[in-house]
Amino acid sequence: MSADLRSMTAYARAQGGDERYAWSWEIRSVNGRGLDMRTRLPQGWDRLDNPLRQRVQGKLQRGNLQIGLTLRQTGEVAPIKVNRALLAELAEVARELHEEGAAVSASADGLLSLRGVLEPVEESAEEDEAQRNRRDSALLADLDEALDQLMAMRRAEGTQLGSLLEGHLRDIEDGVAQASAHAATQPDALRTRLRNLVEELLQASPALPEERLAQEAALLVGKADVREELDRLHAHIQAARKLLSEGGAIGRRLDFLCQEFNREANTLCSKSADVELTAIGLQLKAVIEQLREQVQNLE
């Protein structure tokens, strides 16, 4: 039975606010080979990026995440000032580009909308520092809430994935049992067919050494024996079930097992000397591919 499996696909949102701002965090998570974060923070709030990443890394191991913070001012609007040095520099660059024909003439509102041109006027340093620390703590607490929601959704999705994966493993196990039933008679049938072939060749060409033909026949019989591949498939099934029972971040290890599943199924098909056994092998490959597709969603 699977335990504590986590999908990489989830969404979470948490809201909060204080006397001056209302805010909301949104986190979207999809499949990823590692842990990749893309953050979108309002201008002037980049200081939250590092603690944000530390919190995510402490909770998640894999997934592509998009994390956004939206802020809306609800209290008294803070006064702003124009960074005239930066504005003059940007205006000069815009003028040069316009004269070179590389850009249209810049407008005042366009220049003022550029990052860093308008800056909030700092209030009392001591008061601002204390207020900022309280606000940052509240913001990060709400981020923790959003991350907890995300993890809960990933676990819920993981539980459903676990049921699907166990179903695919049962199908693979059934296919291995069917293949074993056919493979048990394949060596004897092949020996009989090759014995008849040797007799026909000896009748057609008496000069051929019978011992050499017997050696070649034995070699072909050995190459067509798929029981070793079936034993390995059975071992992979047990290994996959053990991983599912352990839970946690097992996606990478299960993905590797899927590659091994596929390798053995391919070898079974290539060695098969029986039409029905080949058909079973092809069906096994189809189920293994379904298993692999679902495993890609696991953390």
Rank of each mutant, 00 (worst) to 15 (best):
G281T: 02
L169I: 14
V121H: 08
G116S: 07
L213G: 11
Q203I: 12
K285N: 08
E229L: 00
A130R: 15
E299T: 07
L90W: 13
L161F: 02
T185L: 10
S137T: 15
A94C: 10
R115F: 06
R40W: 01
L41H: 02
E145L: 05
A102G: 10
E89A: 08
L112Q: 02
M1L: 03
G222P: 00
D136K: 06
L208C: 05
D144M: 07
Q131T: 08
R40T: 02
L147H: 03
D231N: 01
G63E: 04
R155Y: 11
Q15K: 10
S24C: 13
P187G: 01
G162S: 08
S245P: 01
G175Q: 12
E173D: 15
R28M: 06
R55F: 09
L87E: 10
R241V: 06
E96C: 04
Q61K: 14
D49Y: 01
A265G: 11
R47D: 12
R33I: 02
V30H: 03
G162V: 09
R154H: 06
G44V: 10
R253M: 11
K81C: 08
L298S: 06
L233V: 00
S7C: 01
G101F: 07
L257I: 13
W45R: 08
L219H: 09
A78P: 08
R193A: 15
L243H: 02
L111N: 01
E26N: 13
A125L: 12
N64R: 13
R47N: 04
M151Y: 07
E210G: 06
L71I: 14
A94K: 09
L143K: 04
N262H: 15
N64S: 15
L41A: 03
G175F: 01
I27R: 04
K285S: 05
N133Y: 04
L298Y: 05
A10F: 01
S105W: 08
V30S: 12
A152V: 05
E92V: 02
D109F: 09
E127C: 10
I250Q: 14
S163E: 15
T70C: 05
R252I: 05
R13W: 03
Q66E: 04
S270V: 06
L233C: 00
A106M: 02
R154E: 10
I80V: 15
G251E: 12
R135E: 15
A239G: 09
P187T: 02
H182T: 04
A130S: 11
G75M: 03
P206M: 02
V198I: 10
T185W: 04
P51G: 11
A152D: 12
G248E: 02
I80P: 00
I27W: 00
A106Y: 04
G175N: 05
A78N: 06
L194E: 07
A184W: 04
E76P: 05
E122V: 13
Q73T: 13
